[in-house]
């Protein structure tokens, strides 16, 4: 039986009726049209479905929509605004960290959450903070460059 879920996504308030077997990923993608969140496996292995739930990154394919009741969610759509791209998104574009782009939304959400919690992650911490987001195209190298360009130590000066 459907139940009503109330949640905040990218600062917008939503109230939706969902079946208990609906995942958060499917709620976002198919019910709310927030298709920026991708699905590459549906079993927690790829990270394409990464969103931030109450401050922590999760695989939204392994969270029930009902579990998101009364939570705050950030998805890739919430990062850019009318003033432009988020600096991290800008860095992904500039550094060539995007190829097919299918892993990108999840990758950026993980990277943003990492930087939010630790403004100056080491190279190893960056790798660990992205270890659940598979990318088959880029070999990660330019992704590391993009994320590390946003570390507080590398800001303000040249990024090269």
């Amino acid at each position: 039986m459907k139940k009503i879920v109330t949640l905040t996504i990218n600062k917008e308030h939503y109230e939706v009726a969902v079946e208990p077997n609906r995942t958060l990923a499917d709620l976002l993608r198919y019910d709310l049209g927030l298709t920026g969140t991708k699905k590459g496996c549906d079993t927690g292995d790829c990270g394409a479905c990464t969103v931030v739930l109450d401050g922590d990154v999760v695989n939204s394919c392994l969270v029930l929509a009902l579990q998101a009741d009364n939570t705050t969610i950030e998805t890739i759509e919430g990062l850019s605004n009318e003033d432009g791209l988020h600096p991290l998104q800008e860095a992904f574009v500039e550094k060539g960290a995007i190829q097919c782009g299918f892993c990108t939304p999840g990758m950026i959400m993980s990277a943003k959450n990492l930087l939010d919690k630790n403004g100056n992650p080491s190279d190893t911490e960056i790798r660990e903070g992205l270890s659940g987001n598979l990318c088959r195209c880029t070999g990660y190298t330019k992704i590391f460059e993009a994320v590390s360009s946003q570390c507080s130590d590398n800001q303000g000066g040249s990024n090269e």
């Binding site: 927690g44 990270g47 990154v57 999760v58 695989n59 270890s131 659940g132 987001n133």
Partner: peptide
């Protein structure tokens, strides 16, 4: 255990 995402759950 698992990945940084899985460990949060």
């Amino acid at each position: 255990l698992g990945t940084h995402l899985i460990r949060n759950r």
